[in-house]
Amino acid sequence: MDAILEESVGKSLVVENSQLRVTLREGLIGCEMWREFALEAPPDLAPLMYLHSLDQTDLTFIVTHPRYILPSYQVDLSESDKADLGNPTPAELATVVIVNSARRGEGQIVTANLLGPIVINLTTGSGRQIIQPEYSAHHLLSETPVC
């Protein structure tokens, strides 16, 4: 079953058989043991996607494309990052950011980590979490009181 996620920039992220294998050679920052993932884009979840860990059972992240959150969001890839990803063309490059939900006092706060996006070469499945210093690790999406 193919799931197609239309990105706001007009590029589609095609996830064959519902999952794209993604390998972060250096792992997630601060969690280097988590390197192998499966990116899943169930149509009814869009624009959210799952990034399931293949290194640890029952571990997953909820991710989305950053331009859903901030249309002006730009990723600045160094030459070294590009080389590490196999020099993808712009069409081959996708970016996702991790969404986090936490309790704050009596309520719930939802944020996106725009400081540490994950860039992925869609052709090879090779990915890397990089730092974009001009953005926040806690970009606020919503803050709701818990009834």
Binding site: T60, I62, N100, I131, A137
Partner: peptide
């Protein structure tokens, strides 16, 4: 910056049931 992202990664990790 690296510490912030590392902490945020840890905090955002979910079990399938929670997700």
């Amino acid at each position: 910056l690296l510490d912030q992202v590392g902490q945020e990664n840890q905090s955002a990790a979910l079990s399938l049931k929670e997700s």
